[in-house]
Design a protein around this nucleic acid. Sequence first.
DNA 1: GCCTCAATTATACACTTGCATAATTGCAGA
DNA 2: TCTGCAATTATGCAAGTGTATAATTGAGGC
Lengths: 213, 213
Amino acid sequence: MTGERRKFTRKSEDARREALIAAALELIAEGGPTAATVRAIAARAGVTPGLIRHYFDGKDDLTREAYRAMMAAMQADNTTVLGPATADPATRLAGFVTAALRPPVMDPHRMGLWAGFIHQVRSDPDMAAVHAETYLRYRDLLESLIADLGRHEASALRGLAIACNGVIDGLWLEGSALPAAFAPGELERIGLMAVGAILGLDLLSRHPAEEQP
Amino acid sequence: MTGERRKFTRKSEDARREALIAAALELIAEGGPTAATVRAIAARAGVTPGLIRHYFDGKDDLTREAYRAMMAAMQADNTTVLGPATADPATRLAGFVTAALRPPVMDPHRMGLWAGFIHQVRSDPDMAAVHAETYLRYRDLLESLIADLGRHEASALRGLAIACNGVIDGLWLEGSALPAAFAPGELERIGLMAVGAILGLDLLSRHPAEEQP
DNA sequence: GCCTCAATTATACACTTGCATAATTGCAGA
DNA sequence: TCTGCAATTATGCAAGTGTATAATTGAGGC
């Protein structure tokens, strides 16, 4: 009885590419770039290493595509949480802030994923462009939310958006890096307080206080 | 003539350990954890790979020590920039904020170094403890600076310190990740504006405005 | 049902990684 | 000056890395 050849089923190119990208992202999130070897990625995707070379130009190509997918997913998350522009601007903004400061966005794995890409983003111009574009789009979205409040001069919007973005990113970082240091909901409240103070309005009242009986 | 054996000079244990740690940190900052191989570290330290095993229990041990050294250096930076408690509290706070938002603290390499450690910090309890301790000490320092202002109730200090820390970290992150997106000094000004707004005081006036003729 | 061919697997290779061990040699103390 | 020993280098190895190439085989079109 010779070593039996592994059974397999053929799937669409899209399905295979998605599965490989998802596997790569999971592994990077869990163990950093080092853990995302070709063999590990293939194993997690339920496939043989050779298939990676069949659907991608190589490991670097797969990594680039995975980064693209991650950034696209993050952006989709942001527009989803925002919803339609029916609610009043302050409430929309409050929802935007708190969404970033609780799971699944605020999560050690997500931060690990983000950190795992940093060096390649810096060395690969293609990835750097994706990074810059996504960041600026996020900030522009925030700026438009602030503009909708109708409280600030147009010339101040850029600085305010950068500041609020900083608050959100910074608290996200702290909470993701050291989850045990904060009570549940604490960072959401602090985020609303800080962004409200910067913009000169009370956002905390827009927040469903989950600690009240 | 056989291959000549490499000349070398003996050095103290401390000097060799420091050189190896410095080399490891440089490599991680430049190219991420992947680039910091034993051979690369040894080469940069002007030494042969075997010496790493002579002074450290292995590569992981060297990595841990390098992380410790980095965190200690960062902490020393913070207390240095603060200086003696002679100046008035608001000016001290302003100096603390701006120091984090300009080189050499705000720097792509530093961010890369920090990011390069994240996964090991998460998986190694020893490194995790160092991380938590350093973060909390930084925040406590910030909290005491805020308390010195004499404007806030003690019960509010924790939240304010977390918020200001978030602003600083977030802007540091943005500026380090995408330096080209900001004008020189812009993030310092935005940081002072935001921290001032959160704490209810004008910090911008404490900042030497370098853009005025 | 069978045939074809692309999707998938299997195998092999050159290179790198961390580490263990043995061979040297700089240099402090006599 | 010489000698001994620890600091340093040299060598080798097993495991893991990405990739190229050849061998199989699932499944849609006839």
